[in-house]
Design a protein around this nucleic acid. Structure first.
Length: 502
RNA sequence: GCGCCCAUAGCUCAACUGGUAGAGCAACGGACUCUUAAUCCGUAGGUUCCGGGUUCGAUUCCCUGUGGGCGCACCA
């Protein structure tokens, strides 16, 4: 791997480039000029080729040099700009002295080119350079990836594929692997689509603290830090939930936050310690409204990225169009695991749990056992979009009881492709019950270190009255994985966490 | 935390059962004014991840470490 240290001037490849750099300076070329006036992107030239060619108009393009083919007193190169690649053609007799720049050019340099467009003998749209300007000399060598197009079949040679280096030096990955750039463009289009949708519906985007003196809204081990001036310990937010509810209490009736949540846990294909979460709260709404919103978000983002709501994921088709199936957790257990938990005693459930090598932390309450069975035996089988509803009361203290049957709550989790994508409630707003449930839960903190402490200010806030509210959390990284057909969360995160180099 | 796998030139990869490394691309010199994995001729490039061990001899076998990947566990 390219060394992390400052450029080693003894290194042959770097030394050669430094030599070229000083040659350029000797010839009066500034290798790091200030600006360049670009008139066209490569795509615009391709789209508007007929007109540009017949009018003989000059275009000015700029980009990174990705290939060079020297031909003595002429040459070709490809420039890569944000819209793709385009070939340039240079001739010594046209460029005169500036041809020296071309001769000293390396792959990875930035170049500005002015010229007319034409088609080569082999039919490639090309800019015939009348002027070239070096815009940046690179002193490290990029990995060279070559492609061959043969009857529509694209063969890639020497693809830059080592995961470690791609993650550590994502900038290289973005330069040489065009599909990686496209993937991240998708990521940010998904996020902006969600913003647009919520903004259209009158939601206000807000920000809540990352540094919190107490943490809550989820079960997770937090990251700890400290603030010098205040001389206090702080925690990085594990969830924005309790703050967003304070805003609803404060009269901000429709709010959302696209938030990094920090959970001090392991990394695997679907978990990442600083993941991105959308949380939405809407006053006077319940979890049914949140289900509709969820469906809408999936539909809109799928259409934005895939053009339709039927998407391909890992070889299977997933139909994200609404309405999604709603399935009670106990029915899901019946259907997918052939377990009828409603007819079983606590003891039977517990022995079943053990027989399947599943676990519940701390006191194995009936509802938690049912939840663990569901997670262990059913989740991965929920391929087509499904709202799992009817969670047991014990699974969370922040949710209203089911209006029909109080041993369950008005919660849902959306599942797609065997993976949980979020969590939503008819939010609990009974201040006395809220206090009771949070205090009761906090008593188990000794047994389960992921249970958060009681947030007394949150309880106080609830006591001032929170309207009926629907709340929704959606994992953005997982949504991006789904819509871009990725199986590892690190592939949808620009700079995944790694142990430091050397 | 546990298990399996991987680490060789700037990149992608070779090297049979142990005999101190080889190719393509990139780089460098030369030729070439429509090439496109440009081509042709030539050149150079390596602490084989670090450290130990076995051996006459280790890229290869063993151990420790480092980094990474995958799976399991954890992640309501």
């Amino acid at each position: 791997m390219c060394p992390l240290s400052p450029p080693d001037f003894q290194d042959e490849l770097i030394r050669r480039r430094l030599e070229k750099l000083s040659k350029l300076r000797d010839e009066g070329v500034n290798p790091y000029p200030y600006r360049f006036c670009r008139t066209h992107l490569s795509r615009q030239i391709r789209e508007d080729f007929q007109r540009l060619e017949s009018s003989g108009q000059q275009v000015a393009i700029a980009g990174r040099v990705m290939s060079i083919r020297q031909h003595g007193k002429a040459g070709f190169a490809h420039l890569q700009d944000p819209a793709g690649r385009i070939q340039i053609y240079v001739r010594q007799d046209t460029l005169g002295e500036a041809f020296a720049i071309f001769k000293l050019l390396d792959i990875g340099d930035f170049l500005g080119v002015v010229g007319k467009v034409f088609r080569t003998k082999t039919d490639e749209i090309t800019v015939a350079a009348s002027q070239i300007e070096l815009l940046c000399k690179a002193i490290r060598q990029l990995p060279i990836v070559k492609e061959k197009d043969e009857e529509g079949k694209k063969t890639i040679y020497d693809q830059f594929s080592g995961k470690e280096q791609r993650y550590r030096q994502r900038y290289i990955d973005l330069i040489v692997n065009p599909e990686v750039k496209e993937l991240f463009q998708c990521r940010f289009r998904i996020i902006s689509t969600i913003r647009r949708l919520l903004d259209e519906q009158g939601f206000l985007e807000v920000e809540t603290p990352v540094l919190q003196s107490t943490y809550g809204g989820a079960y997770a081990r937090p990251f700890r830090t400290n603030h010098h001036a205040l001389d206090i310990s702080l925690y990085l937010k594990i969830s924005p939930e309790l703050y967003l509810k304070r805003l609803v209490i404060g009269g901000m009736e429709k709010v959302y936050e696209i938030s990094k949540n920090f959970r001090n846990e392991g990394i695997d294909r679907t978990h990442y310690p600083e993941f991105t979460m959308l949380e939405v709260y809407q006053a006077y709404a319940d979890y049914n409204d949140m289900m509709e919103l969820t469906e809408e978000i999936f539909e809109r983002t799928a259409c934005e990225i895939c053009g339709r709501t039927q998407i391909q994921y890992q070889g299977g088709e997933i139909d994200l169009s609404r309405p999604w199936r709603r399935l009670r957790m106990v029915d899901a257990l019946k259907q997918y695991a052939d377990i009828d938990v409603e007819t079983m005693s606590d003891e039977q459930l517990l022995s079943l749990l053990r027989a399947r090598h599943l676990e519940v932390k701390g006191e194995p309450a009936r509802g938690l056992i049912i939840n663990a069975l569901f997670e262990g035996l059913v989740e991965e089988k929920l391929i087509q979009p499904t709202f799992i509803i009817g969670h047991p009361r014990e699974t969370t203290p922040l949710c209203k009881s089911d209006r029909e049957n109080p041993i369950y709550i008005e919660r849902f989790e959306p599942f797609v492709a065997g993976c949980e994508f979020g969590n939503a409630y008819s939010e609990l707003n009974d201040p006395l019950l809220q206090r009771e449930l949070l205090e009761q839960q906090a008593q188990s903190r000794q047994i389960d270190d992921e249970i958060p402490p009681v947030d007394n200010d949150f309880l106080r806030a609830i006591e001032y009255g929170m309207p009926p509210t629907g709340g929704l959390g959606l994992g953005i990284d997982r949504l991006v994985m789904l819509l871009t057909n990725q199986t590892s969360i690190r592939d949808v995160i620009l700079f995944p966490q790694m142990r430091p180099e050397s």
